[in-house]
Amino acid sequence: MKRIFLFLMTNVAVMIVLSASMNILGVGRYLTANGLDLTQLLIFSAIIGFTGSIISLLISKWMAKRSTGARVIDPQAPGNPREAWLLDTVHQLADRAGIGRPEVAIYQGAPNAFATGASKNNSLVAVSTGLLESMSEEEVAAVLGHEVAHVANGDMVTLTLIQGVVNTFVIFLARVAGYFIDQVVFKNERGVGMGYYITVLVCELVFGVLASIIVAWFSRQREYRADAGSASLLGSREPMIRALARLGGVEAGELPKNFQASGISGGKAISAMFSSHPPIAARIHALQAAQQL
């Protein structure tokens, strides 16, 4: 909760600095004088920017089950010894991490796993049949530790906030640019014209690409933290190193686009800058380097 509070305060500070900078440069005064209320625009942008992200977070468990076909294991009656072991392992890891026990699910597919949920005490950890069949129990436990660490770190909530903030800036800055270009370049003096709409469309595309790079960078950092979290929960980095090495040698299972960032192994990206996960080799190196400290 403290980390989330600091994150929100940091972004409020950024918005204040942005507003002050626009006023110092005269842009804010010019736009305000010509009928654009920056405060109202910022509020509008925040509502639009955060609404979709928050709704996605709240329904993430339901969407994950529907989109992957994941079957939740009944804690009172696991179907077989493997399911009983999965439940017991996730519950032990959750207890060590000090969070509520997540739902545990299995889905059909190539090696992968993910965690999702609206809070630390309302989460889901799911593993694929391919991962269970291709790894030893110790390696699977390391992957489960990685996913539990994501939940314990509050990564789902943090990434939702980051996505909401960048969405807000994309919407806000695109409309400020659109209004400015419409007034200065196209000399439109009544309402907004085509210059506004064209500029907003172009700026949203450009700023959206830049925002994706920012979100992907944050996502990669949380993967390093979750790897380290797994090592901490298991008391050793070796199982996580071996699990990552195993993942590096197989074709990872593709998750639905909305959940690719949640998987132990990310989906394909057009560039490393847009990747939600660091390269496997880099993750192994980070664990090995930490082990030597």
Rank of each mutant, 00 (worst) to 15 (best):
Ser123Asn: 07
Ser136Met: 01
Val17Thr: 06
Gln291Met: 07
His91Asp: 13
Ala13Gly: 15
Gly253Asn: 05
Val166Thr: 15
Pro81Gln: 06
Met240Asp: 06
Arg222Gly: 11
Leu234Met: 10
Glu254Leu: 14
Asp227Phe: 09
His150Tyr: 05
Pro81Asp: 11
Gln183Gly: 08
Gln221Tyr: 00
Leu38Cys: 00
Phe218Val: 06
Asn80Val: 08
Gln291Asn: 13
Ile59Val: 15
Val17Ala: 14
Leu247Ser: 11
Asp95Arg: 13
Gly130Gln: 06
Gly154Pro: 01
Ala226Ile: 09
Ala261Leu: 08
Trp62Ala: 15
Gly26Thr: 02
Leu8Val: 14
Val125Thr: 10
Phe7Ile: 05
Thr68Leu: 12
Thr32Ala: 08
Ile73Leu: 07
Phe274Asp: 09
Phe169Thr: 01
Leu244Cys: 10
Leu57Phe: 03
Thr68Asn: 06
Leu25Val: 03
Arg246Gly: 07
Arg222Asn: 13
Pro81Phe: 07
Arg283Pro: 08
Leu293Cys: 02
Tyr30Trp: 03
Glu103Pro: 00
Pro256Lys: 12
Ile214Trp: 12
His277Trp: 10
Glu137Trp: 10
Val140His: 05
Met194Trp: 14
Ile43Pro: 00
Glu138Pro: 01
Phe114Leu: 15
His277Ile: 02
Ser219Cys: 07
Val12Gln: 00
Val192Gly: 01
Thr168Arg: 02
Met22Pro: 00
Arg101Cys: 13
Arg66Ile: 04
Arg237Thr: 14
Gly28Lys: 01
Ser53Val: 06
Arg175Ala: 07
Ala110Gln: 14
Gly35Val: 01
Ala70His: 09
Met1Ser: 12
Ala211Ile: 12
Val17Trp: 02
Gly98Asn: 07
Arg237Leu: 02
Asn112Lys: 03
Arg82Tyr: 00
Ala272Ile: 03
Leu8Trp: 07
Ala77Met: 11
Ile73Asp: 10
Ser236Asp: 14
Gln221Val: 03
Gln292Lys: 15
Leu255Ala: 14
Glu139His: 08
Ser136Tyr: 04
Ile162Gly: 13
Gly98Cys: 09
Val215Tyr: 11
Gly248Asn: 09
Leu87His: 09
Ile241Thr: 11
Ala70Arg: 09
Val14Met: 09
His146Ile: 11
Asp37Thr: 02
Arg222Trp: 11
Glu103Trp: 01
Asp227Trp: 08
Val202Cys: 05
Pro278Gln: 03
Leu210Thr: 04
Ala174Asn: 03
Phe172Asp: 00
Ile171Met: 00
Gln92Ser: 14
Leu159Met: 14
Ile24Leu: 13
Gly178Val: 06
Gly263Phe: 05
Leu86His: 12
Ser265Tyr: 14
Glu204Arg: 02
Ser219Gly: 07
Pro81Val: 04
Ile241Gln: 10
Val206His: 01
Glu103Leu: 06
His150Trp: 05
Leu42Val: 02
Glu254Ser: 15
Asp182Pro: 02
Leu86Cys: 13
Ala46Asn: 05
Ala70Lys: 08
Ile43Gly: 03
Phe207Leu: 15
Arg101Ala: 13
Phe259His: 11
Thr158Cys: 07
Ala245Met: 09
Leu6Trp: 04
Gly178Met: 03
Leu38Ser: 00
Val127Arg: 09
Leu124Val: 12
Val202Gly: 02
Ile171Asp: 01
Asp155Pro: 00
Asn121His: 03
Tyr196Glu: 08
Pro239Phe: 04
Leu132Thr: 09
Leu31Asp: 08
Leu201Gly: 05
Ala286Arg: 04
Ser276Phe: 05
Ala33Ile: 02
Leu201Val: 02
Lys187Val: 12
Val148Ile: 15
Ser212Ile: 04
